[in-house]
Protein backbone atom coordinates (compact mmCIF):
# COMPACT_ATOMS: atom_id res chain seq x y z
CA UNK A 1 0.00 0.00 0.00
CA UNK A 2 2.73 2.41 1.00
CA UNK A 3 4.60 1.76 -2.23
CA UNK A 4 1.48 2.67 -4.21
CA UNK A 5 1.12 5.93 -2.37
CA UNK A 6 4.80 6.64 -2.83
CA UNK A 7 4.57 6.05 -6.55
CA UNK A 8 1.46 8.21 -6.81
CA UNK A 9 3.13 10.98 -4.89
CA UNK A 10 6.21 10.88 -7.09
CA UNK A 11 4.06 10.98 -10.21
CA UNK A 12 2.06 13.88 -8.85
CA UNK A 13 5.22 15.79 -7.98
CA UNK A 14 6.64 15.22 -11.42
CA UNK A 15 3.38 16.30 -13.01
CA UNK A 16 3.11 19.56 -11.06
CA UNK A 17 6.78 20.27 -11.56
CA UNK A 18 6.38 20.02 -15.30
CA UNK A 19 3.30 22.23 -15.17
CA UNK A 20 5.13 24.76 -13.03
CA UNK A 21 8.12 24.80 -15.34
CA UNK A 22 5.86 25.16 -18.36
CA UNK A 23 4.06 28.10 -16.87
CA UNK A 24 7.28 29.67 -15.59
CA UNK A 25 8.71 29.45 -19.08
CA UNK A 26 5.50 30.25 -20.93
CA UNK A 27 7.26 31.95 -23.71
CA UNK A 28 7.27 33.42 -27.16
CA UNK A 29 9.57 32.46 -29.98
CA UNK A 30 10.58 35.16 -32.42
CA UNK A 31 12.50 34.85 -35.64
CA UNK A 32 15.77 36.83 -35.69
CA UNK A 33 18.84 36.96 -37.89
CA UNK A 34 22.12 37.36 -36.01
CA UNK A 35 25.14 35.99 -37.74
CA UNK A 36 28.88 36.34 -37.83
CA UNK A 37 29.96 38.52 -40.69
CA UNK A 38 30.50 36.83 -44.01
CA UNK A 39 28.38 33.80 -43.04
CA UNK A 40 27.97 31.43 -44.88
CA UNK A 41 31.40 32.36 -46.15
CA UNK A 42 34.42 31.96 -43.88
CA UNK A 43 35.30 34.52 -41.24
CA UNK A 44 38.72 36.11 -41.39
CA UNK A 45 41.20 34.86 -38.83
CA UNK A 46 42.70 37.09 -36.17
CA UNK A 47 40.02 39.79 -36.03
CA UNK A 48 38.91 40.70 -32.53
CA UNK A 49 35.55 42.22 -33.29
CA UNK A 50 32.92 39.71 -34.35
CA UNK A 51 30.41 40.46 -31.70
CA UNK A 52 26.67 40.76 -31.78
CA UNK A 53 24.92 42.67 -29.03
CA UNK A 54 21.54 41.27 -28.08
CA UNK A 55 19.11 44.11 -27.46
CA UNK A 56 15.72 43.20 -26.00
CA UNK A 57 12.79 45.00 -24.42
CA UNK A 58 13.19 45.93 -20.77
CA UNK A 59 9.91 44.16 -20.00
CA UNK A 60 11.26 40.79 -21.00
CA UNK A 61 11.85 38.47 -18.05
CA UNK A 62 14.44 36.18 -19.54
CA UNK A 63 15.35 34.85 -22.94
CA UNK A 64 17.44 32.27 -24.70
CA UNK A 65 19.02 32.23 -28.12
CA UNK A 66 18.86 29.44 -30.66
CA UNK A 67 21.91 28.83 -32.80
CA UNK A 68 20.97 27.14 -36.03
CA UNK A 69 24.64 26.37 -36.45
CA UNK A 70 28.06 26.99 -34.95
CA UNK A 71 31.12 26.15 -37.00
CA UNK A 72 34.57 27.15 -35.76
CA UNK A 73 38.03 26.06 -36.73
CA UNK A 74 40.57 24.60 -34.30
CA UNK A 75 41.41 26.98 -31.42
CA UNK A 76 38.46 29.28 -32.25
CA UNK A 77 35.17 29.36 -30.39
CA UNK A 78 31.80 31.06 -29.99
CA UNK A 79 30.74 32.34 -26.60
CA UNK A 80 27.73 34.16 -25.20
CA UNK A 81 28.54 36.48 -22.33
CA UNK A 82 26.79 38.99 -20.13
CA UNK A 83 29.20 41.78 -20.95
CA UNK A 84 31.89 42.72 -23.39
CA UNK A 85 35.54 43.70 -23.30
CA UNK A 86 37.26 45.65 -26.05
CA UNK A 87 40.44 43.63 -25.58
CA UNK A 88 39.35 40.12 -24.70
CA UNK A 89 35.76 40.26 -26.04
CA UNK A 90 34.38 37.91 -23.40
CA UNK A 91 33.52 39.44 -20.05
CA UNK A 92 31.13 38.84 -17.21
CA UNK A 93 29.12 35.63 -17.03
CA UNK A 94 29.78 33.10 -19.77
CA UNK A 95 26.43 31.55 -20.68
CA UNK A 96 27.69 29.36 -23.48
CA UNK A 97 30.94 28.45 -25.13
CA UNK A 98 31.13 26.19 -28.13
CA UNK A 99 33.72 25.15 -30.64
CA UNK A 100 33.82 22.79 -33.58
CA UNK A 101 30.64 22.05 -35.49
CA UNK A 102 27.21 21.97 -33.82
CA UNK A 103 23.61 22.58 -34.87
CA UNK A 104 20.38 23.31 -33.00
CA UNK A 105 21.92 24.75 -29.85
CA UNK A 106 20.02 26.72 -27.23
CA UNK A 107 21.75 28.93 -24.72
CA UNK A 108 20.55 28.71 -21.13
CA UNK A 109 17.97 31.31 -20.07
CA UNK A 110 19.55 34.74 -19.84
CA UNK A 111 18.46 37.78 -17.91
CA UNK A 112 19.90 41.11 -18.89
CA UNK A 113 22.18 42.02 -21.78
CA UNK A 114 24.18 39.51 -23.78
CA UNK A 115 26.93 39.50 -26.37
CA UNK A 116 27.65 36.82 -28.92
CA UNK A 117 31.41 36.61 -29.48
CA UNK A 118 33.41 34.79 -32.11
CA UNK A 119 36.90 34.38 -30.65
CA UNK A 120 39.55 33.60 -33.24
CA UNK A 121 43.26 32.94 -33.11
CA UNK A 122 45.54 34.06 -35.87
CA UNK A 123 46.57 30.57 -36.92
CA UNK A 124 45.20 30.47 -40.46
CA UNK A 125 42.34 28.10 -39.63
CA UNK A 126 38.87 29.41 -40.34
CA UNK A 127 35.31 28.22 -40.68
CA UNK A 128 31.89 29.77 -41.22
CA UNK A 129 31.01 31.12 -37.78
CA UNK A 130 27.49 31.16 -36.37
CA UNK A 131 23.90 32.05 -37.09
CA UNK A 132 21.20 32.68 -34.51
CA UNK A 133 17.74 32.21 -35.97
CA UNK A 134 15.39 32.43 -32.98
CA UNK A 135 15.00 34.12 -29.66
CA UNK A 136 12.64 32.67 -27.07
CA UNK A 137 11.57 34.94 -24.25
CA UNK A 138 9.32 35.17 -21.24
CA UNK A 139 7.54 38.24 -20.13
CA UNK A 140 6.25 40.70 -22.62
CA UNK A 141 7.79 42.35 -25.56
CA UNK A 142 7.66 46.13 -25.47
CA UNK A 143 6.93 47.46 -28.88
CA UNK A 144 6.03 51.07 -29.40
CA UNK A 145 2.25 51.20 -29.27
CA UNK A 146 -0.54 53.66 -29.96
CA UNK A 147 0.63 57.25 -30.34
CA UNK A 148 4.24 56.29 -29.60
CA UNK A 149 4.29 54.12 -32.71
CA UNK A 150 3.60 57.07 -35.00
CA UNK A 151 5.19 60.32 -36.12
CA UNK A 152 3.44 63.40 -34.75
CA UNK A 153 2.44 64.23 -38.34
CA UNK A 154 0.44 62.43 -41.03
CA UNK A 155 -2.20 62.72 -43.71
CA UNK A 156 -5.45 64.04 -42.27
CA UNK A 157 -7.18 60.93 -43.62
CA UNK A 158 -6.01 57.73 -45.27
CA UNK A 159 -9.47 56.45 -46.18
CA UNK A 160 -8.92 57.10 -49.88
CA UNK A 161 -5.31 57.96 -50.65
CA UNK A 162 -4.49 58.46 -54.30
CA UNK A 163 -1.40 56.50 -55.30
CA UNK A 164 0.73 57.18 -58.35
CA UNK A 165 3.28 54.62 -59.45
CA UNK A 166 5.88 55.98 -61.84
CA UNK A 167 6.75 53.73 -64.82
CA UNK A 168 10.06 52.92 -63.09
CA UNK A 169 8.20 50.85 -60.48
CA UNK A 170 7.15 48.38 -63.19
CA UNK A 171 10.47 48.70 -65.02
CA UNK A 172 12.39 47.48 -61.97
CA UNK A 173 9.80 44.80 -61.18
CA UNK A 174 8.13 46.20 -58.03
CA UNK A 175 4.51 46.68 -59.18
CA UNK A 176 3.23 43.46 -57.66
CA UNK A 177 5.05 44.11 -54.40
CA UNK A 178 3.54 47.58 -54.15
CA UNK A 179 0.08 46.15 -54.79
CA UNK A 180 0.66 43.45 -52.18
CA UNK A 181 1.79 46.04 -49.66
CA UNK A 182 -1.18 48.34 -50.26
CA UNK A 183 -3.60 45.41 -50.04
CA UNK A 184 -2.12 44.23 -46.76
CA UNK A 185 -2.98 47.56 -45.11
CA UNK A 186 -6.31 47.93 -46.93
CA UNK A 187 -7.36 44.55 -45.54
CA UNK A 188 -7.00 45.63 -41.93
CA UNK A 189 -10.41 45.64 -40.28
CA UNK A 190 -11.57 48.42 -37.97
CA UNK A 191 -9.28 50.86 -39.74
CA UNK A 192 -10.42 53.40 -42.29
CA UNK A 193 -7.75 52.81 -44.92
CA UNK A 194 -8.13 52.84 -48.68
CA UNK A 195 -6.06 53.48 -51.77
CA UNK A 196 -7.00 54.53 -55.28
CA UNK A 197 -4.64 54.11 -58.21
CA UNK A 198 -3.96 57.40 -59.93
CA UNK A 199 -2.26 58.37 -63.16
CA UNK A 200 -1.64 61.85 -61.86
CA UNK A 201 1.89 62.79 -60.89
CA UNK A 202 0.38 65.02 -58.20
CA UNK A 203 -1.27 62.15 -56.34
CA UNK A 204 -1.00 62.02 -52.56
CA UNK A 205 1.41 59.09 -52.65
CA UNK A 206 4.07 59.11 -55.38
CA UNK A 207 6.13 55.95 -55.75
CA UNK A 208 9.15 55.58 -57.98
CA UNK A 209 12.12 53.25 -58.31
CA UNK A 210 15.68 53.73 -59.44
CA UNK A 211 19.22 52.39 -59.27
CA UNK A 212 20.70 54.93 -56.85
CA UNK A 213 23.98 53.13 -56.25
CA UNK A 214 25.49 56.20 -54.59
CA UNK A 215 23.39 56.04 -51.40
CA UNK A 216 23.13 52.95 -49.17
CA UNK A 217 19.40 52.68 -48.48
CA UNK A 218 16.79 50.15 -49.58
CA UNK A 219 13.90 52.61 -49.82
CA UNK A 220 13.04 56.04 -48.47
CA UNK A 221 9.87 57.93 -47.63
CA UNK A 222 9.54 61.69 -47.36
CA UNK A 223 6.34 63.61 -46.57
CA UNK A 224 5.68 67.16 -47.78
CA UNK A 225 3.18 69.90 -47.14
CA UNK A 226 0.75 70.69 -49.93
CA UNK A 227 3.07 73.52 -50.97
CA UNK A 228 5.99 71.12 -51.39
CA UNK A 229 7.92 71.80 -48.20
CA UNK A 230 9.54 68.76 -46.57
CA UNK A 231 8.15 67.79 -43.17
CA UNK A 232 10.53 66.71 -40.43
CA UNK A 233 9.77 63.76 -38.15
CA UNK A 234 9.05 65.98 -35.17
CA UNK A 235 6.66 68.51 -36.70
CA UNK A 236 2.91 68.38 -36.19
CA UNK A 237 2.10 69.31 -39.76
CA UNK A 238 -0.53 67.77 -42.02
CA UNK A 239 0.89 66.01 -45.03
CA UNK A 240 -0.02 67.19 -48.50
CA UNK A 241 1.73 64.34 -50.25
CA UNK A 242 4.56 61.86 -49.75
CA UNK A 243 7.18 60.30 -51.99
CA UNK A 244 8.47 56.74 -51.76
CA UNK A 245 11.70 55.88 -53.56
CA UNK A 246 12.70 52.25 -54.07
CA UNK A 247 16.44 51.64 -54.51
CA UNK A 248 16.79 48.61 -56.74
CA UNK A 249 20.61 48.75 -57.03
CA UNK A 250 21.31 48.71 -53.31
CA UNK A 251 18.74 46.01 -52.53
CA UNK A 252 20.43 43.83 -55.12
CA UNK A 253 23.91 44.65 -53.85
CA UNK A 254 22.88 43.45 -50.37
CA UNK A 255 21.42 40.26 -51.81
CA UNK A 256 17.80 40.90 -50.87
CA UNK A 257 15.45 38.14 -51.99
CA UNK A 258 11.93 38.75 -53.28
CA UNK A 259 10.67 38.17 -49.75
CA UNK A 260 13.11 40.71 -48.30
CA UNK A 261 12.14 43.23 -50.98
CA UNK A 262 8.45 42.75 -50.20
CA UNK A 263 9.27 43.50 -46.59
CA UNK A 264 10.96 46.74 -47.62
CA UNK A 265 8.01 47.86 -49.75
CA UNK A 266 5.42 47.06 -47.08
CA UNK A 267 7.65 48.78 -44.52
CA UNK A 268 7.73 51.99 -46.55
CA UNK A 269 3.97 51.91 -47.04
CA UNK A 270 3.76 51.69 -43.26
CA UNK A 271 5.57 55.04 -43.15
CA UNK A 272 2.89 56.41 -45.50
CA UNK A 273 0.43 55.63 -42.72
CA UNK A 274 2.77 57.52 -40.42
CA UNK A 275 4.16 54.48 -38.62
CA UNK A 276 7.62 55.00 -37.10
CA UNK A 277 10.33 52.36 -36.70
CA UNK A 278 10.23 49.57 -34.10
CA UNK A 279 13.70 48.89 -32.74
CA UNK A 280 13.75 46.14 -30.13
CA UNK A 281 15.01 42.72 -31.30
CA UNK A 282 12.10 40.87 -29.68
CA UNK A 283 9.41 42.89 -31.42
CA UNK A 284 7.69 41.29 -34.38
CA UNK A 285 6.89 44.17 -36.71
CA UNK A 286 7.03 45.17 -40.34
CA UNK A 287 8.45 48.47 -39.09
CA UNK A 288 11.81 47.06 -38.05
CA UNK A 289 14.65 48.10 -40.36
CA UNK A 290 16.92 45.81 -42.27
CA UNK A 291 16.92 42.67 -44.35
CA UNK A 292 14.07 40.63 -42.85
CA UNK A 293 11.50 38.08 -44.01
CA UNK A 294 8.32 39.53 -42.50
CA UNK A 295 6.20 40.71 -45.42
CA UNK A 296 2.93 41.99 -43.95
CA UNK A 297 1.83 43.95 -40.88
CA UNK A 298 2.14 41.99 -37.63
CA UNK A 299 -0.41 41.99 -34.83
CA UNK A 300 1.48 44.88 -33.22
CA UNK A 301 1.32 46.90 -36.43
CA UNK A 302 -2.36 46.09 -36.97
CA UNK A 303 -3.24 47.11 -33.46
CA UNK A 304 -1.37 50.40 -33.84
CA UNK A 305 -3.05 51.13 -37.16
CA UNK A 306 -6.47 50.40 -35.72
CA UNK A 307 -5.65 52.81 -32.90
CA UNK A 308 -4.84 55.71 -35.23
CA UNK A 309 -6.99 55.11 -38.28
Amino acid sequence: MKRKYLLSTVLLVLFFTSVFESSAYASTVQEVDLRSANYPGNYIDGMNIYDQRVSVSSTIGSYRLHFARIATAANDRVSVTSSYSGTSQEAGTIYLTSSGYSTDIWTPWITGPAYINLITTNDGNVSTGFVVDYIEYTGTSSPLINANAFYPNSFSSVSNLSVYQAPSVATYGYSTMVTNGLNSYDAITNANIGFTASTSTTAQVRISANNTSGLDFFAITQPYTSSGKAISSIETTTWGYATVVINNAVMNSWGLTTTNKQKVITHELGHILSLNHQTNLDVNSIMKTGKLTITSPSSVDISNIQYKW
Partner: peptide
Protein backbone atom coordinates in the same frame (compact mmCIF):
# COMPACT_ATOMS: atom_id res chain seq x y z
CA UNK B 1 14.67 67.43 -42.18
CA UNK B 2 15.56 63.76 -41.73
CA UNK B 3 13.93 61.39 -44.19
CA UNK B 4 13.14 57.88 -42.99
CA UNK B 5 14.60 54.94 -44.81
CA UNK B 6 14.77 51.18 -44.70
CA UNK B 7 18.49 50.47 -44.87
CA UNK B 8 21.08 47.79 -44.15
CA UNK B 9 21.91 47.49 -40.48
CA UNK B 10 25.53 46.68 -39.63
CA UNK B 11 25.91 45.06 -36.24
CA UNK B 12 29.63 45.50 -35.68
Amino acid sequence: YSANADYPVLDN
